[in-house]
Design a protein around this nucleic acid. Structure first.
Length: 883
RNA sequence: GGGGUUGUAGCUCAGAUGGUUAGAGUGCCUCGUUGACAUCGAGGAGGUCACAGAUUCGACUUCUGUCAGCCCCACCA
């Protein structure tokens, strides 16, 4: 008996297999290796992060593509690495410090950064280790980090060049500020959510006592910083009042009533209080109308000094106080409920405060134009295509990108300020002396760059930029980028812009977009809901192959998918099925050596048929992988292996395997082994571990499955019968007969495995001879014995009809005639209905004249078959009725 | 306010360039313990493909509209 375990236990082999792959350097390639270059750069996970389902999906899709291309013979590089993830990582270390009763300011910048690096060393390997357990075939020898030397050099070089070209500038502008993270943010790091708020109507009296203007605001606390009230120039209500002076309530500041076409006449009262320091639109209006900026809210979200009793209050406390005071002073007219969008920090969800500050920006328009063009021209393609529109729309409406962050963890901005002469120096290398005044009192800009700035360079910084490396020449542009739709703006668009700017070419030819992995209720997996499923746990329980297969099946590009444990189980069951089919073969091989040479064998119908199925599967799987339809490819493999190979083919080899004809036995073994080995190769990208471990046990395979060729048409050609279609058609007829017999047996409660006498009545003589020759297939699959070919129509029998064949299951006693008539009548109705629709088409002149000839012919054939079936059924029913 | 997307069996989802008896997994029902596999095998029930029009000889598949859900973008206080 075989020593192979009866069930699939991935825990027994996945780790060792991965270690062997890595040891044998199967993941590694070089620029001068042969083959077409195929390269994917990994979307770098956060160094301090842990593997989650989103990663698992992303990595699985990439690994499938990578493994497929490597087998195809391409020079395949999967470039791995991690991202320093500025805010996220810094926040974690700050949290740790909080636990120790200290903070980063007490520690100081240098010490703090040491701590972050320590943290990175400690947890930076966790994520890459977890990637390994998934089977990711990354070239780990090339692993990179967004803050390693090379990436940092790339960042400095790009920054300096953009600055010198005027595409990076420093400016005092209103930007999104997170009071909790204490840093500026870019527009896309702000998440807008509609909230139920209020609209406070407030009276601002004229200085001359001639009444008042009523303004409406959602943020009354900002009134402390008002420096004007705006109305639309064409607004008749205010036309004569423009230019007059108002007294700002509570503050008693004199502010002008002015006209600006930004104002919407139809909203609220048509008069807007203007706070240039705390609202983006007001900021613009302030600039246009020369209004002073009065800052009343500090970076921490607390009211500024010099505001009397309001100073030091939290912004929302202050709001309450202001409203109360306005009401007490008789300035508050009314309060309305008002739904509006409020910005929140993507990281900590704190409400964003627009603040005026000095920040660094990237000028986007000139960078965006070629990035739009690259997609419009088809140089870069999105899969699925619909994401191109989203991408283009965003780039066409792009605004300048605020890239400075008031953090410590990240790429420090390469700018120095001379305290002696006030000049600013932007430089790739550290500056110790001012080139203008030769002063030595230089201060480096304290800010760091947005994490996405370095991510934007990832496709070329990892390949060696700023050095002109062989890798860069060979692998850039990379082949495809695989990522979720949630970071198209953050990352994809920026890589395209930077790639075009600094390499003159798109960074990748395809962007393969996938969706989110949700929980069983369709909710996003999140920490706060605690509904996340840990991929590591899934791998430990069911194996990486099961997880991978589950993530890939039944999913299409760009669509979200739900995680179900039952789906993982189903994938595991598939793995177990393969395991046992292989075990069956290996057990038989123990007693019979595998024939080395197919020339000595004699292939029979079943053999030719399974090879035809394999070839079809090979062609379709390949096609679907090329089209990124990985779910469909996986489905085809599942279908071939389980239904065709296991359910039918293996069963059909048993009589030969257990029989005494040595040549027949050898043939069956050969085909079993050959088809399995090729199927394993086709499945390898999806289930790398299982396919490797099984293939290593096969006598007809050598080396690692990872580096053996992808199955080709040429390789299969010698096994494909000339009359492929005819064989397939005949095989289908046999399978239909088998199904009918099984059905009849089940209908009368005979055990499906109990041998039962069957009578076949075949219309066509050639067909009859052919069926007689292969009658063993029917008896083996349907447990039918004996099978008699006859012209008689036994009356005491159950019957079924398929095209060209009547099938009888004779019974010893009397059959329940009425029940049988009812069953056959039901069948008859079904066939008649089909025939009616077919003849309807054929009676339609326009169908005959307009439909293509082959479609018409197919309908004709269909009708003939249906009519035959109808007449058989009618005769049978008639016969039974006359018993 | 724009834009996208989804609506197919109880549940989760597949179904290029229009012509299938509309599929799978899972769940459900009936039957089955001789060895590849009960992580299995055999059979079965279950869908007017959201709704209404249009195009067409023919629409689950194309177009338009309606309804319902989800998502993204947006500086109306």
């Amino acid at each position: 008996m075989s020593n192979i375990p009866k069930t699939y236990e991935p825990q027994n082999f996945e780790k060792e297999i991965y270690a062997a792959w890595e040891r044998d350097k199967h993941f590694h390639t070089t620029a001068d290796a042969k083959g077409e270059p195929y390269c994917i750069v990994i979307p770098p996970p956060n160094v301090t992060g842990q593997l989650h389902m989103g990663h698992a999906l992303d990595e699985t899709l990439q690994d499938i593509l990578i493994r497929y291309h490597r087998m195809k013979g391409d020079n395949t590089l999967w470039m791995p690495g991690t991202d320093h993830a500025g805010i996220a990582t810094q926040a974690k270390v700050e949290e740790q410090l909080r636990g120790e009763g200290t903070n980063r300011y007490e520690l100081g910048r240098e010490k703090f950064l040491e701590r972050v690096w320590q943290w990175k060393e400690k947890y930076g390997n966790r994520i890459t280790y977890q990637l390994r357990t998934l089977g990711s075939s990354c070239d780990w020898e090339r692993e990179r980090f967004t803050m390693d030397e090379g990436c940092s050099a790339a960042v400095r070089k790009v920054f300096v060049q953009l600055y010198n070209e005027g595409l990076i500038y420093r400016g005092t502008r209103i930007t999104n500020w997170c009071p909790k993270c204490n840093t500026a943010l870019s527009d896309i790091e702000v998440e807008h959510e509609t909230e139920q708020g209020h609209l406070w109507h407030i009276r601002y009296p004229f200085k001359d006592g001639s009444g008042y203007v009523e303004v409406a605001t959602t943020r009354p606390e900002t009134m402390l910083g008002d420096t004007g009230v705006a109305v639309h120039p064409d607004d008749e209500r205010y036309k004569n009042l423009v230019g007059k002076t108002l007294i700002l309530p509570l503050v008693n500041r004199e502010i002008p009533l002015f006209a600006d076409s930004y104002v919407d006449k139809n909203f609220g009262t048509g008069a807007v209080k203007v706070t240039p320091a705390h609202d983006p639109n007001d900021f613009e209006m302030g600039l246009r109308n020369n209004l002073p900026q009065v800052k009343v809210i500090e970076n921490t979200g607390v009211m500024s000094d010099g505001l009397g009793k309001y100073s030091g209050l939290d912004r929302y406390e202050c709001r309450k106080q202001i409203v109360a005071d306005l009401e007490a002073g008789g300035y508050l007219v009314k309060v309305e409920n008002h739904e509006h969008a409020v910005g929140h920090c993507q990281r900590c969800h704190t409400t964003i405060e627009p603040l005026v500050s000095k920040q660094w920006f990237v000028k986007m328009e000139t960078l965006a134009a070629p990035a739009i063009e690259a997609v419009k021209s088809g140089e870069l393609k999105f899969v699925p295509e619909r994401f191109t529109k989203i991408y283009i729309n965003w780039l066409e409406n792009i605004r300048d990108w605020c890239i400075s962050r008031q953090l410590w963890w990240g790429h420090q901005i390469p700018a120095w300020y001379c305290d002696d002469c006030g000049e600013m120096i932007v430089s790739e290398t550290d500056v110790h002396e001012c080139p203008h005044c030769h002063g030595k009192n230089l201060r480096r800009d304290e800010d760091v760059l947005d994490t996405w700035f370095s991510s934007g360079l990832w496709p070329f910084s990892t390949l060696g930029y700023p050095n002109d490396t062989a890798e860069l020449k060979k692998f850039y542009p990379t082949s495809v980028l695989v990522t979720g739709y949630d970071i198209i703006f953050f990352w994809v668009a920026r890589m395209v812009m930077m790639g075009l700017k600094f390499q003159g070419k798109v960074p990748f030819k395809y962007v393969f977009i996938h969706g989110l992995v949700r929980d069983e209720l369709g909710r996003k997996m999140s920490k706060s809901l605690n509904n996340g499923v840990d991929p590591v746990e899934v791998i430990e329980k069911y194996g990486a192959d099961s997880l991978r297969f589950m993530l890939v099946t039944g999913n299409t590009p760009g669509n979200d998918l739900r995680f179900y444990w039952s789906k993982v189980e189903s994938a595991r069951n598939f793995a177990n099925k393969i395991w046992n089919a292989s075990r069956f073969l290996l057990m038989n091989l123990e007693e019979n050596p595998l024939p080395p040479n197919p020339d000595t064998l004699s292939f029979e119908l079943a053999d030719k048929w399974i090879f035809s199925c394999l070839e079809k599967t090979r062609a379709n799987v390949t096609k679907n992988i090329e089209r990124f339809e990985l779910g469909e490819a996986a489905r085809l493999l599942y279908e071939f292996i389980w239904f065709y190979y296991c359910d039918y083919y293996i069963e059909l080899t048993k009589s030969r395997l257990y029989g005494s004809d040595a040549r027949a036995k050898a043939t069956a073994l050969f085909v079993l082994a050959t088809v399995l080995e090729k199927a394993l190769r086709l499945l390898h990208p999806f289930m790398p571990f299982l396919t490797e471990v099984i293939r290593q046990k096969l006598p007809n395979a050598e080396g690692s499955i990872m580096v053996v060729n992808w199955v080709t048409e040429d390789e299969l050609r010698e096994f494909i019968p000339d009359d492929k279609d005819g064989i397939e058609k005949f095989a289908n007829q046999i399978l239909e007969i088998v199904k009918t017999i099984r059905n009849l047996k089940s209908e009368i409660g005979i055990d499906s495995r109990k041998k039962t006498k069957i009578i076949l009545r075949v219309a066509n003589t050639d067909n009859k001879i052919n069926l007689q020759e292969h009658v063993s297939y029917i008896s083996e699959l349907a447990f039918a014995e004996p099978i008699i070919f006859a012209d008689e129509k036994p009356s005491h029998a159950m019957s079924g009809v398929i095209e060209g064949v009547e099938i009888y299951l004779p019974l010893e006693g009397l059959i329940d005639t009425e029940k049988e008539i009812a069953r056959l009548t039901k069948e008859l109705e079904k066939v008649r209905k089909g025939a009616a629709s077919t003849s309807g088409k054929l009676n339609n002149e326009r169908f005959l004249s307009k439909a293509p000839a082959d479609v018409v012919q197919a309908e004709r054939d269909k009708l003939v078959a249906a009519n035959e079936k109808i007449s058989s059924l009618e005769q049978r029913i008639n016969q039974l009725e006359n018993l």
